[in-house]
Each structure stands twice: as structure tokens, then as C-alpha cells.
Write a protein that binds this DNA or RNA. Sequence first.
DNA 1: GTCTATATCGTGATAGAC
DNA 2: GTCTATCACGATATAGAC
Lengths: 220, 220
Amino acid sequence: MSAAADDAPVSRRELIRQAATELFAQCGFRGTTIRAIAERAGVDPALVMHYFGSKEKVFSAVIREAMRAETFLPEVLDGTDEDLGRRLLRAFLRRWEDPDTQPLLLVVFRSAMEHPEASRLFREVASGEILLPLADRLETPEPQLRAVALGSLLVGLVSGRYVVRVESLADMTLDAVVDLFGPYAEQMISGRGDVDAPVPGTLRGAPGVGAESAPSGARD
Amino acid sequence: MSAAADDAPVSRRELIRQAATELFAQCGFRGTTIRAIAERAGVDPALVMHYFGSKEKVFSAVIREAMRAETFLPEVLDGTDEDLGRRLLRAFLRRWEDPDTQPLLLVVFRSAMEHPEASRLFREVASGEILLPLADRLETPEPQLRAVALGSLLVGLVSGRYVVRVESLADMTLDAVVDLFGPYAEQMISGRGDVDAPVPGTLRGAPGVGAESAPSGARD
DNA sequence: GTCTATATCGTGATAGAC
DNA sequence: GTCTATCACGATATAGAC
């Protein structure tokens, strides 16, 4: 399964960076070798060293690109407070469902558990780029606490759904996830939201049950 | 800093297993070496191989012990529904704060992000030992969905507080965490709970602010 | 049971021909 | 820019003396 882009004449350097991104996302930092990166990119291992200088430098390039691309928050923050939590959740999930951005997010997330640089970056991005702007935007009491709670919910969600792939989370449709977590997200940041009961029928137990079961009108 | 138990004459095998647990928790599977385990346990590297046969076997033993010890749920499930979420949250956190059990939990959690066996184990334990019993216990509609939501919240909480150590979460007192997340946990599994506003003053911004700021009477 | 010595392999990184 | 050959190192694992 060659994952190289096949429509634009991308540079070999870029090809290597993409291959490295996927491998770091899948195998972590230690589990990824220069040789494997080269093989996946279809180039010689020495070429990886020639372009980047070291494995650490490759990793830094990947992480930096992931950080650069991660700016989903601003577009969500302008708008009414009414369904802010739900919109934020949906925008967040959209990036995790996107095959283009998922490896970038995965590499940061997974590496944050084992590599110091990724861990530091995760803290910085989480605090500075997500929690703080969100807290600044909120007009409810104790906005920092609310932002932290919502961040925890999102992290737990992606951990189960995309990283560890716990069945009950991984098998849900996207709309089902939004329907389940949306009200809680809403509660956390605005204190509003109806959480009497999660919408039924959203757990993909029986085969053939698709995205039909999402009556909510929330769209991005 | 030698972490060997110094009050009981534990077997060398047990000594090795304890050292391995701490190292796997701290450095992950790939980052931990037989040599490092032996050094920390104060034995010869070959002895590790003699007792366990391979690094994988050491890892399995550690994981199995972690699973064996992880039975905090039953004692929480019998009792009233009133503050079930809060009690569950507190019991859960108590194990994470305990210096004896934290390495065991960390090793499972961290390894689940990089090692296939740990990942599988995490899924099994999460689904079978936590989510299912909890869902069976609930009398609210859609108990599975509620259990999954609560599980996500807990995972997100420990990720931020104990694994990646995001400041705003890691610096909170235990009571502050319970006060912040308790109402949400309550909401998730019972649909009850007051979430009008998180209790103020619980974020350890100023030095000297300890556990004083938790007026809630919930205890384990 | 315990340790020394070593086999075997895969890793990141380098040197240098073309 | 690209690739072959190779180094130096640390890993798991084994063989065998005591």
C-alpha cells in the first residue's frame, strides 16, 4: 500500500516527510526506523539522512508541520454561544476523521506519550492554542476550569476512538459521537444543554445501521 | 533512587518485576531495556532472562499483574445511585494518586499507546471490566452510552493529569479535580447533578493554596 | 541459582564513489 | 543528488563456568 501522493510532482523531501509522518503516527518515535521511512517513501535510507541530518530532525519536521496545520479553533470561536460546544466538538472530530490530518494528529498524540519533545509540544499547544483561547472566549464563570474539562473530554474521546480503538467508541458513526458527547460539551462550557438521556440507537450494534440515526440538525 | 521494597524479604523475581513495572511505566516498552531493569533491581541482566525468558515475557508478567490488581470497580458499584459518579471518580483517582498502584496503571495506559498486546489488554479491560459492569449497574436509559462517555472523561482526565501532565490539570489538588469533574460524571451516568458553575478557587494559580478549597463533603 | 563472555542482529550515522 | 559499503554501538538472547 503505497501512500505517496500521485497527482502532484511532490519533492522527495516532502515524500519522505509524509512517509515519516505516517510511520511515526503508527509506530511511535522509537518504533520508527530511518530504513522504514526510506522504504515507505521509495528512496534510499541515506537520502533521508542527507535531507534531514538525523532521525530527531525528521521527527521535528513532522511535529512542526503538525503544529502548523492545527488551527481549527479560530473559525469555531466566532459565532453564537448557543451551540458552541457542539460546533467545537464537530470541528475537532472533522480533523480526526480526515485521512489527511489524522496522521498528523495521531503522531503528536501518540508521541506525546513517549517522546519528550512531543510531550512538551502537546502541553504547549493544548494550553496555549486550545484551552486559553477557548477560556478567553467563554463568558461563563470559571472559564479555565470549563475549558480544561472540555479538553479532557476531547482527549478521552480520541484516545478511545482513534488511538486504542475501544470497540464501543470506534464503531460509532460520527453523528452518533456528536450526539452523545455534544450535550456534555455544551454543559461543560456553557452550563446549558439537555442531557436527560443520550439519543438511543446510535451504538452500532447491529450491522447496517449507518448515520441514519442522527436526528440532530447540527452541521459544520 | 532505589525503589526496591525494603521491609519484606521479597524474591529476586518479584524484585525484577517491580523494577520492570516502574521502567515500563516511565519509558514504555521499547524504551525499556533488560539491562536497565536488571540495574534497577540490583541484579545481573542474565538473571532477568533466566526468570522470564524474554523481554516480552517480562512485559506480559507486568501487564498481567496490573490487570489482576485492577478491581476497584465492584466496591464502588454497591451503594446508592445518588452520588455514584462522584464516588466512582474518587475511587478511580485514589488509585492513580497512590504511589503503589500508579506505576501499574501508567504502564498499561502508556503501553496501550505503543504496544499491541497492551493495546488489546486495555480494550478488554476497559470494555469488559469497567464499561460493561458499570452499564449493567445503571438504571438510566442507554446505559452503555453513558458508561462510554464517563470512560472517555476519565481517560482524558488521567491523560492530562498523570501522563502528559498539562499544567492546569496536573497542578490541581485532588479535591479540586473531584469538584470539577464530579458533577459531569454525575450528569453522564445519572442525568443528575448541578453543573451551573465549577467551584471557584480550585485552580492552583497562587502558591500556598492547598486542599482547603474543597467544601464538598464527598468522601470515599 | 548466579554471573561472565559472547553470538547475532538491527540501529543511526558516516565516507566516499558516481 | 544518489547510492553502496561500512562503522560503532547497544539491543536481545545464549552458552557455559562456578
